[in-house]
Design a protein around this nucleic acid. Structure first.
Lengths: 299, 299
DNA sequence: ATACAACGATTGAAAATTTCTATCAACAAT
DNA sequence: ATTGTTGATAGAAATTTTCAATCGTTGTAT
């Protein structure tokens, strides 16, 4: 039964019997039969069948919600009992939006000092992907915006406020300024994240509100790529202050606070809403709270 | 996996491998092997083994908590999907303390008018047994005191306040009074519930507080037995007003309010704390809320 | 001390189930 | 028409589950 529920979760995620079977480590007929058996025991169709996978029925969607909860609880149970036996071990899968990737170290490093047997997987994801992956039990936690778009069934720990800076060569236009306005930022050639990133959508909004015409000359989903371009001196970019600091400013590259308005967005840790949490998740949340205190003291 | 968790729940309840196996509908070796397999997958001992069942280990207790939740959720899922398909059907198992048994009809009758395909099982239980049975997923709801002893992980809907009356023959001592005091009640030969009943413990407390010496001449765990004795005219009893009313007063039997103090205890419906509730439980809670409104209007 | 009863573990065979490979049928794209 | 993709189906193999029978231990009554 529990494995059949896993099949349903995988199927809803992959929208494809074959791929879902692969991620579950079984063959496609096995997964097909599992879904069919689930349908028989519940007495309803869960999957809309045409010549191929179309989608879940309303009953299937409802069952999916239950499946996520039940499978999640079963995993939490196993993890908690294991933690009782041998302390905190295992793997924490954390997904982060690109602008927070540098901040992850501030979370993982003190965590590892406390719990040396825990291994990490850090993934770069969009905020939407993070919420999806949390729902599908593919990751244990996410680092993303808390205050912009709806979060769903998650618990959140605010960590810090993102403030925006213009990253540019000191001999480029605006390179000598103490502060710049969003209207001014709009006038220089920018390289920014791709529009599937929430950070980009935020910056787009701020530029538009300042009356700037929007035409970034380069897009990437990698902050490293953006930073490399800024280093050439021919592009500028907009980055959160915390990230610019981590990447390291040289004499030729400056980070200039952007004002009018001095925009701020809250970044935080999100974890699945579950009571009680898994021991690993609970420990990560505790670490995040400590980090939030430190960041509030020394902004 | 799910069935193994059911084994654990049954074992914790029965404290006996053989009986637990029987309630699960499997043989004792099957249940033994199931528990052992659970222990192997979790990597801990769940059961303290001597020559016979001793108890659960701390890890076993923790696993039991998870098992109750997971098994409960799995059942709730099945029930909810079934309700989507064919409306509210199935069985509602309700346990009630004896003094509320007559009130159950006020709940079940309007419920059945709305949902004719639901069948009921009504059990007479002590308040402690009700809470245990709720934990062990043996009943769906209980009717008991809300304000005296700790309830545990349940949701409660207050229904009405129990007030106490002396039930006695009109030609017996005190039989002609408008009201009586607890001190006076202590002077007549009483038949009361057995001390495992919370109602009895409440009445004991009230009698003791009034300085009365406590010596009921007859005990039973059945209200019917108590009432039958009162009907002989040789015994009196103490009953909640609502119950005395239902049992029907004759010209020879009177129900006299007991004052000093005019004691009151809250009776309500308790159901397992689960979000969302099963459809049957949710419907029962809704019915209980309606009943509470009616009883508050016309006390 | 001995016999006995109760309890849970173990064993081995039978039964049920699950899983896989191979193949099919339906449909879509070309 | 042809080809590729997708999910269902069939049959064989493997695994797991279940049960009846039995064993070993422990506590108890005689």
């Amino acid at each position: 039964m529990l494995d059949k529920l896993e099949y349903l979760i995988a199927l809803a995620r992959e929208q494809h019997f074959g791929r879902a079977a692969e991620t579950c480590g079984v063959t496609q007929p096995t997964l097909s039969a599992g879904i069919k058996q689930l349908e028989e025991t519940l007495g309803v169709l869960l999957v809309q069948r045409g010549s191929r996978f179309i989608g879940l029925t309303p009953e299937g969607q409802r069952t999916l919600d239950w499946a996520r909860r039940i499978v999640g609880d079963a995993r939490a149970m196993r993890e908690e009992i294991k933690a009782l036996r041998q302390g905190l071990t295992g793997q924490l899968r954390i997904a982060a939006i690109p602008t927070t990737l540098a901040m992850v170290a501030a979370l993982t490093t003190p965590f590892r000092a406390r719990h040396p047997d825990v291994r990490f997987t850090i993934l770069s994801r969009t905020s939407i992907e993070i919420l999806n992956a949390l729902e599908n039990l593919q990751i244990d936690a996410g680092l993303t915006y808390l205050d912009n778009e709806p979060l769903g069934r998650v618990s959140a720990v605010p960590l810090y406020h993102e403030r925006y800076q213009l990253l540019t060569a000191s001999d480029a236009p605006l390179g000598d300024r103490i502060t710049v306005t969003w209207a001014e930022v709009a006038t220089v050639p920018l390289c920014l994240l791709t529009p599937d990133m929430q950070n980009r959508r935020i910056i787009d909004g701020l530029l538009r509100a300042a009356g700037g015409e929007l035409q970034p000359t380069l897009e990437s989903n990698s902050m490293i790529a953006l930073f490399a371009h800024v280093r050439t001196g021919r592009w500028a970019s907009v980055m959160p202050a915390q990230l610019a600091e981590t990447l390291g400013l040289t004499t030729t590259i400056r980070a200039i606070p952007i004002v009018e308005p001095e925009a701020m967005h809250t970044i935080g840790l999100v974890v699945p809403m579950r009571e009680p949490m898994t021991p690993l998740t609970a420990a990560l949340v505790a670490e995040a709270r400590r980090l939030a205190v430190r960041m509030a003291e020394k902004p």
